[in-house]
């Protein structure tokens, strides 16, 4: 069964239609890259899966978006529950202005978990998963804002992992980072894909080629092509995809 699925989705911001009849299926434990020129609707489409667009007043959508076969825009879906299953990492690292420790346990605290053993274990486990443990294990009580940008981003990934989601959405997670930090985040994505379904928006073609199993090319609100990454980069069916991945426009 598909992990994520969208069927005939339209999105409007006011009168402006920004997603035009997109359908896509995403397999469990895979990495899918969303690519396409700026403003083509990648972020908007990504944020449909954890309903982050709901906060935009003029947002309106039609169609079906499913996780594990359940329509997430159904009336009796609780968004808070949904978001425990579907984590999100943003373009700009956005740790909370709290300690490293408190950043990681936030997701557990809001679920009402107070047991110190569980919290401690989760902190260690998540930070190890995010390859940050060695760097911060002696300063868990320090402010997360004192970390470098790359460390902050890995902290945000760890924070997301702490609530054990099954899907992680990433919107250009490495674009604000220096090359070394960026490589670390990439490595991390590669490791995580065994246990998580990951969808990543990126403008970096090499990165898409390196980390993803399938790639979806968006253009002006439409999904032009979604296929195995290797095919998209070597032998795309659509000419616009070809032009984009070879850098001839966009």
């Amino acid at each position: 069964m598909n992990k994520l699925e969208a069927q005939n989705v339209n999105v409007y911001y006011g009168a402006n239609k920004v997603i035009n009849d997109i359908s896509i299926s995403i397999k469990p434990n895979s990495v899918t890259a969303f690519i396409g020129p700026s403003g083509c609707g990648k972020s908007t489409f990504l944020r449909l899966f954890n309903r982050m667009n709901d906060y935009i007043d003029i947002f309106k959508m039609e169609g079906k978006v499913e996780i594990d076969g359940k329509n997430i825009y159904d009336k009796n879906i609780r968004v808070e529950e949904l978001r425990k299953q579907i984590g999100m990492v943003f373009q700009k690292p956005n740790p909370f202005p709290k300690s490293i420790y408190e950043n990681i346990v936030y997701g557990l605290r809001i679920q009402g978990i107070k047991d110190k053993n569980i919290l401690d274990e989760t902190v260690e486990k998540s930070l190890k998963q995010a390859a940050l443990w060695e760097e911060v294990k002696d300063k868990l009580k320090n402010s997360a804002l004192a970390l470098s940008g790359g460390q902050q981003q890995r902290l945000c990934i760890a924070r997301t992992l702490a609530v054990e989601p099954t899907v992680i959405l990433m919107d250009e997670p490495a674009s604000a980072l220096d090359p070394i930090s960026s490589a670390k985040v990439e490595e991390l994505i590669y490791e995580l894909k065994n246990n998580y379904t990951i969808v990543i928006v990126t403008h970096n073609m090499q990165q898409a080629a390196r980390v993803s199993d399938t790639t979806a090319f968006f253009y002006m609100g439409e999904l032009i092509e979604h296929d195995a990454t290797k095919l998209i980069f070597t032998n795309p069916k659509n000419e616009r995809t070809q032009n984009y991945v070879t850098g001839r426009f966009g």
Partner: peptide, 9 residues
């Protein structure tokens, strides 16, 4: 956004 995305009300 970060807080909402973590599942906070």
């Amino acid at each position: 956004e970060a807080s909402f995305a973590m599942g906070a009300s």
